[in-house]
Design a protein around this nucleic acid. Structure first.
Length: 192
DNA sequence: CATAAGATCACC
DNA sequence: GTGATCTTATGA
């Protein structure tokens, strides 16, 4: 068995630090259909006082998982048809999270290809809604904590990369904030 | 009632 | 490569 990141990992760091530390870690989902896994290569942080953050105004039915203990899963529907997955961060009762934007597929490629209905490796997990589909993540994952056998992150085994920091993608509010991070040169990042 | 942390397809 | 279009829960 490999090194499942414990809840202390998520509690120990602030949101932006965690966003960077998650790069290189492997997200794993053991589903009934099979195991899928991928290296996190792109993340974005969403903070308190940040107008782009879903928890900017107040706690609600949708964003409630963001206020849970760090390491709690937050999944939401966007554009009426896509789902994206976040990991709650910041202290409990603080509405912050890290959006997982892209993975480099490592295990369960065939299953991902079936779920995504494409064989193109670079089109499997190179976007927040793509990886959710490829990994078989659903709304039911809300409030799950990322420390179970079925759903977790594995510690990074490689720190031999540089992190690029940019502004976030697809937002209008807070568009100038440098809260997006990705592994330099990685081919599976959603876009430049 | 307008919008949204996106992906896809048609057509340059 | 670029722009139009899909679709609906959520929150103002």
């Amino acid at each position: 068995m490999q090194n499942i990141l414990p809840k202390e990992f998520y509690e120990k760091h602030d949101t932006l630090t965690l966003s960077k530390l998650l790069l290189g870690c492997t997200l794993v989902h053991e589903s009934p259909e099979g195991r899928t896994a991928g290296i996190i290569v792109e993340t974005e942080g969403y903070l308190q006082g940040d107008p782009a953050c879903h928890a900017y105004r107040k706690k609600s039915t949708r964003n409630a998982p963001m206020f849970e203990r760090p390491g709690t899963c937050y999944v939401y529907l966007i554009y009426g048809m896509h789902y994206c997955v976040n990991i709650s961060s910041g202290a409990k009762d603080i509405g912050e999270a890290v959006l997982i934007r892209a993975l480099e597929p490592t295990e369960g490629i065939e299953l991902m290809q079936k779920r995504r209905k494409t064989n193109d490796l670079k089109n499997l997990c190179s976007g927040p809604a793509k990886l959710v589909q490829a990994m078989g993540i659903t709304l039911d994952f809300n409030f799950l904590t990322l420390d179970s056998e079925e759903f977790h992150c594995l510690a990074s085994t490689n720190n031999d990369f540089s992190i690029v920091t940019t502004t976030r993608i697809g937002i209008t509010q807070g568009a100038d904030l440098p809260y997006r991070f990705y592994i330099e040169g990685n081919k599976f990042v959603s876009r430049k």
